[in-house]
Write a protein that binds this DNA or RNA. Structure first.
Lengths: 106, 106
DNA sequence: TATAAGCGCAACTAATCGGTTTCGCAAGGG
DNA sequence: CCCTTGCGAAACCGATTAGTTGCGCTTATA
């Protein structure tokens, strides 16, 4: 069983849930109302998100409020950092080309 | 069959392949040498990456060189942008709003 | 106190996943 | 010309997935 942020984010419904509970804590029922799926399906997604360490939860009577552990999302950003240089290199190269053209003109 | 960048990135082997072919184009065999798995398994991953529009390929004789379409990775970055403001919450709300406005402009 | 609401958990199902094995085809090399 | 090499595609396998249905526990409410 693979449980990491990348797995959490792979499913589109899960991404929608993540976006939903990023701003404010919500109960499973409240979340389920935003989708076509059942409360139980949402609950399963919440369990996965929880196993991926992506959730903060707070019991309030018989209701459980779930909110996103936003910091955890930065793990994806960190992995993506290795590519940032590559797609910025394109701009740098373009800059070089432009500079060269400009210099040749003058 | 769900084929998007998030699906591509969900598998750890696929992430390793992505990292590998980000810098320079490689043949399936050359890629497979970096892992425990077979050439065929790598080929399957390449097919998936290709369906996710993450590959550039170039035939050279009987060899096929695959390289990462780095730009496509930015789709993940764009999705993550919605959380950036949330984990930079150490600023007060006005600062966050101003930063968001500034980033959207540039 | 009886009933309803909110929830997690377990069992089940069809679909999909990552991997292997096998095959066929095209391109080099002796 | 044959043999090897590099590759994709298909068939198959066990494991995992996302979803459903049904259950039982706890908490609120009439």
């Amino acid at each position: 069983m693979r449980r990491d942020v990348f797995h959490a984010v792979a499913d589109p419904t899960r991404r929608a849930i993540i976006t939903l509970i990023a701003q404010k804590a919500m109960t499973p029922n409240a979340i389920a109302e935003h989708f076509e799926t059942s409360r139980q399906a949402v609950s399963k997604h919440l369990r996965i998100l929880s196993e991926c360490m992506l959730l903060k939860q707070k019991q309030q009577g018989r209701e459980i409020y779930y909110q996103l552990e936003v910091k955890k999302m930065r793990e994806i950003v960190h992995w993506l950092d290795q590519f940032r240089a590559l797609w910025e290199k394109r701009f740098n190269q373009l800059d070089t080309v432009l500079t060269t053209m400009k210099n040749k003109k003058s």
